[in-house]
């Protein structure tokens, strides 16, 4: 579904990604972990071209999306993204946050967009918040809304960029629960996270990145019990699991 070939990304003179080759199949839940500065987020942001790769190819559903002539705006409709800092639109109500893209991009008419948004909201237990503004919600609530906002576009894949890193500890659980549910429904997911518990339970595959490269990958069970690369072993020894 997503194929990355020989991906390089440079910021000025800093080489952040150094030759990544990876394929993500439909239905997979790929969790990317690694020390900070290893290029995890940059890699994720290259998948929907929020960062333009310096060289290499990114393919999505049989189309090279970083080739000239590809309409990236159409591609992004099918790739939902959830950010560390939620990035809800503060000037719009919750309902408007969710329906803005489907309505303005003419994917749905207003009535059915609202109906879908309400359905999604009640699924995450926030149906009573539809007229609230983002500033009135807790971090956990905001992130759940942000997930739902992406889902309103009916994406084929969801990209999560450290979705729980900016949350108070007691709110991490509610966000992970929504993601877990999503995984169970069969959504293809690529998740950059520091939540090892989530990686262990939900991932079908764990990628370990260091220094701009994927140095090891495996099923979560194998990955956490018998890591092979010395950098992985060192990293896992430092994190609390």
């Amino acid at each position: 579904m997503i194929t990355v070939k020989n991906l390089y990304k440079k910021f000025d003179n800093l080489e952040v990604l150094r030759g990544i080759n990876e394929t993500i199949e439909r239905g997979e839940k790929v969790v990317i972990i690694g020390p900070s500065g290893s290029g995890k987020s940059t890699f994720l942001r290259c998948l929907n071209l929020l960062e333009m790769p310096t060289s290499g190819e990114v393919w999505f559903e049989g189309q090279q999306i970083n080739a000239p002539g590809c309409d990236i705006n159409l591609v992004r409709r099918k790739m939902g993204m959830v950010f560390q800092h939620f990035n809800l639109f503060p000037h719009l109500t919750i309902l408007e946050n969710i329906t803005l893209a489907p309505i303005k991009l003419k994917i749905m008419d207003k009535a059915s967009a609202i109906e879908k948004a309400r359905k999604l909201l009640s699924r995450i237990g926030l149906a009573d918040k539809e007229n609230a503004y983002p500033a009135q919600l807790s971090g956990g609530q905001k992130q759940r809304i942000a997930i739902v906002r992406s889902l309103a576009m009916s994406p084929d894949v969801m990209l999560f960029d450290e979705p729980t890193s900016a949350l108070d500890p007691e709110m991490v659980g509610e966000v992970l629960d929504v993601m877990r549910e999503l995984a169970e429904e069969g959504m293809t997911m690529v998740v950059v996270t520091h939540e090892m518990g989530f990686a262990r339970e939900v991932a079908t595959r764990v990628l370990f990145m260091d220094n701009g490269q994927i140095v090891e990958q495996n099923t979560p069970r194998e990955f956490f019990t018998s890591p092979k690369n010395p950098r992985t072993i060192e990293f896992l020894a430092k994190v609390i699991i």
């Binding site: 929907n48 929020l50 705006n73 159409l74 992004r76 409709r77 790739m79 939902g80 993204m81 950010f83 800092h85 990035n87 809800l88 639109f89 803005l100 893209a101 303005k104 991009l105 942000a146 906002r149 992406s150 576009m153």
Partner: peptide
């Protein structure tokens, strides 16, 4: 915040529409 632009773009809005809406 730049994150607002990124959120708009990631939903499929063009740069111009992100600015506008």
């Amino acid at each position: 915040d730049r994150g607002q632009i990124e959120a708009g773009r990631s939903l499929g809005f063009s740069y111009v529409k992100t600015m506008w809406y």
